[in-house]
Design a protein around this nucleic acid. Structure first.
Lengths: 142, 142
DNA sequence: CGGGATCCGTACCGATACTG
DNA sequence: CAGTATCGGTACGGATCCCG
């Protein structure tokens, strides 16, 4: 199979059976597509213009080839990215964010800046929480 | 153990060993905290004011008790939510978004609206992609 | 260069049952 | 009411090897 093990966070219909919480479910959809571990980085990189596969690999840095390919394909599938293959001798593939994705890009930047601003506060909150809420290890030392 | 199986997307240090892609990594941090399946819904609900546990359960609807508790705890740990316990006979616990989380709230709404606007486009893109890219099943029919 | 396929660990998430 | 503990499924993500 091709991508049978990683079908990402695809839902069969993308609809709530009830419809009551349709809004929240939509948010989930959006974040499920974008909330992947690497989606944001790729989306941001591809929003500034056509980016090559290898370039993406360098820009995102921590990403593996596999995840890059997978995320790329999912993003393309959702119409957030366009894949352009140049029929040259060394294969040259470029990814470009669609207008739809560019709209999202603004929110992404906002999110990014928010994270940058509060990164320390979050770490601090975490540390203090962990200090006040020990794991209560039942593992008595011998 | 308490929450040993689900330590969520916590990183040991929250720092890049290199520092080169610190920005993208920060985005990941943010989305890892917020990108949970239910974080957004809870965050949104808690941003409008103090919300009780049960109320949250109803507002988010699809969430299980377990995930509600877990997400709540993680959010609280990161300093995005404040937990207030009223020492009454029937326990009354209220969660409130911190100012930091409220800043994020705006971005969340933007994301939500984006998702609502393009939900159909995404579904369409998906359908057409799947149509053009069959799974190429090697399962020959008998 | 730009992927695809496979192996495999782990994180996430849900269902259920029990508690103060 | 507001959790906590345990079981188990599955999606996610990484490493490695192979291919046009």
């Amino acid at each position: 199979m091709t991508s049978q093990d990683d079908r990402c966070v695809s839902d069969p219909a993308g609809q709530t059976p009830d419809g009551t919480q349709a809004r929240a479910c939509t948010v989930r959809e959006a974040l499920d597509r974008v909330g992947g571990k690497w989606s944001i980085g790729i989306l941001i990189a591809a929003s500034t213009g056509p980016v090559r596969f290898t370039e993406l690999e360098r820009r995102v840095e921590g990403i593996s080839r596999r995840m890059l390919t997978l995320t790329l394909r999912n993003l393309e599938r959702d119409g957030l990215l366009v894949r352009h293959v140049h029929p040259t001798v060394p294969p040259r593939v470029e990814y470009t964010a669609t207008p739809m994705a560019r709209e999202l890009y603004e929110s992404l930047v906002t999110l990014t800046r928010w994270a940058e601003r509060h990164r320390e506060s979050i770490s601090a909150a975490r540390a203090s929480y962990d200090r006040e809420h020990p794991v209560a290890k039942p593992t008595r030392s011998v």
